[in-house]
Design a protein around this nucleic acid. Sequence first.
DNA 1: CTAACCATTGAAGCATGCTTCAAGTCAAGT
DNA 2: ACTTGACTTGAAGCATGCTTCAATGGTTAG
Lengths: 151, 151
Amino acid sequence: MVHSIADAAKATGVPASTLRYYDKEGLLPNVGRLSGGSRVFSEDDLAWIRVIEHLKKAGLTIKEIARYTDLIQQGDDTLEARRALLYERKEEVEAELARVQGTLDFITYKCWFYDEAVRLGSEEAVRALPDDEVPAEMLAIRKRCLSGPQQ
Amino acid sequence: MVHSIADAAKATGVPASTLRYYDKEGLLPNVGRLSGGSRVFSEDDLAWIRVIEHLKKAGLTIKEIARYTDLIQQGDDTLEARRALLYERKEEVEAELARVQGTLDFITYKCWFYDEAVRLGSEEAVRALPDDEVPAEMLAIRKRCLSGPQQ
DNA sequence: CTAACCATTGAAGCATGCTTCAAGTCAAGT
DNA sequence: ACTTGACTTGAAGCATGCTTCAATGGTTAG
């Protein structure tokens, strides 16, 4: 089963304009053409587009994905290079996960802060709370996110 | 203790050009000025800049931070609006956390795949592995990330 | 006084990742 | 033959978040 660009767009959720852009950037080296010039997408192409979406989510830029695509095109000789590329990215995604967790902590603290502020009627009242009336978890976050008097 | 823009840049790690940009966008409503026009940053301003960095990490755009800044300027009447804004953001950060975890799973699978590919000498050899030679964790991820034959 | 230095401003520029546009091609239907 | 609709292209445009630039001004040391 093969697909037009409109089909491929519908099947993957990626706009046709974006697919053309990917193609132009070298991300879709296996997409075929009809005699008239229209692109033809195979099931494998669609699967590859989904992988591209994953790689984008993993933080790879279009150029990095183009590089990876190129390595794949070169065959099994580049397996180690690809592995290295992915391990590098894995570390970055792990770091990103930790960062997002830290951000969630911060937001969680802020939400608690505003819950208290709304309850007590002012920000000042929350800032004036003695430490023993602040949940230990919130104290810990406040400490981790350091910085003095602020919003 | 007050600071010049260069001091503030050094203390927060945010470039002076960016601090001017933030100021222009309304993110730094409390920054003072010397008679000559130079900005003056207080300790509170520095703390607020650090909060801005957190909010950016939480995915707020400059405009959203400007909005939040404006709410703060309006005082305790806007506590509930601010709380709502933060709870909304909290949900998005939680979703982001789940997304990054999914991405990490995907990358972890890919790393395993390439470890095997390098070990066996080709991608095809990995694809040809019977399911019972694939770790259950990797099978699970492969299933979750669905899609058929691909890179 | 003057040079050096840091600051200011508005405007323009840049990188990324697309999207939109104008102009044209191609295949199918009537 | 002609219209319709989907597709093509290169180029330009857009949104975000800054950065850089050019022109200018205030402060301080010598």
